[in-house]
Nucleic acid binder design. Structure first.
Lengths: 134, 134
DNA sequence: AAGCCTAATGAGATTCGTTATCAATAATTC
DNA sequence: GAATTATTGATAACGAATCTCATTAGGCTT
């Protein structure tokens, strides 16, 4: 049976408090800094559970570590992420879902997963990077 | 100044001989099995160089390791990858390209990059994994 | 409230991919 | 051929993530 512990809740809340994607390590250390005695292994477990339950999205950062972010549960979606400030927008992509499924089936592949993320500069960071073109 | 060594050439060739994405580790061990005394660190360095020069594509596998594959430089494409045997099919995705661009613009994002990869089990591995459902 | 069962925790050890170190080697230039 | 110096490679170091297992505590029953 699944149990509710203050640790799970602390991780869920810490995730929700954060705007963009965070690593398990940094989430753990910010919890510790905030005075929580939560253990690192527990943070990893809680994040993995949240990801399975659909309450968190996860992606692999460039250097291979897993990053997590709170998300609206129950809905499969992808992300538009500012590579400067980390601002993240959730995007729906039914067309992409169908495309991924069909392209997999077309080549005889089963159990298709897909990784679809768009990185860019958000409006604010675009202006900051090139003020001449607002 | 950059120097040409047989080790770089061996890595480039081993990559080209391979059908799908390979990890640095497995590439190294197959080179060793083939009789080459090449070192592991050198394989990592050669692969990183090839990726920077555009002669290899790299991606992060589900479990966090970097996988590499030879590719024709200057051409943008995506991949359909068997997560069991590594078999890779290059896929065209003009529709996805346009979708990524438009969704980025729609939210005020500029300079859009995107990560689009589909993982699954290829026909052969699907049968091997579940022979009852060929 | 007390007790039981067992899921969950957490400190530390462990695994494993990748990178850094640094003396030795060898590719290029002169 | 000698000099220069990029490159190599064995090994150490690093870091993210997982595992171990004794301990803790959540939720149920009585």
């Amino acid at each position: 049976m699944k149990r509710n512990t203050w640790q799970r809740e602390a991780v869920r809340q810490a995730l929700g408090d954060n705007e963009g994607f965070v690593s398990a390590q940094s989430l753990h250390s910010s919890l510790r800094v905030a005075g929580s005695p939560i253990g690192l292994a527990t943070v990893y477990r809680a994040l993995a559970d949240l990801a399975v339950e659909g309450e968190a999205d996860s992606l692999q950062s460039i250097d291979g570590e897993s990053l997590y972010r709170a998300c609206t549960p129950g809905q499969h979606h992808h992300h538009l992420i500012c590579r400067n400030c980390g601002l993240t927008v959730e995007i729906e992509a039914d067309a992409v879902e169908r495309w991924a499924k069909s392209v997999a089936a077309e080549h005889g592949f089963t159990q298709p997963n897909h990784v679809v993320d768009v990185f860019g500069l958000c409006a604010a960071c675009s202006v900051a990077a090139d003020p001449s073109r607002p």
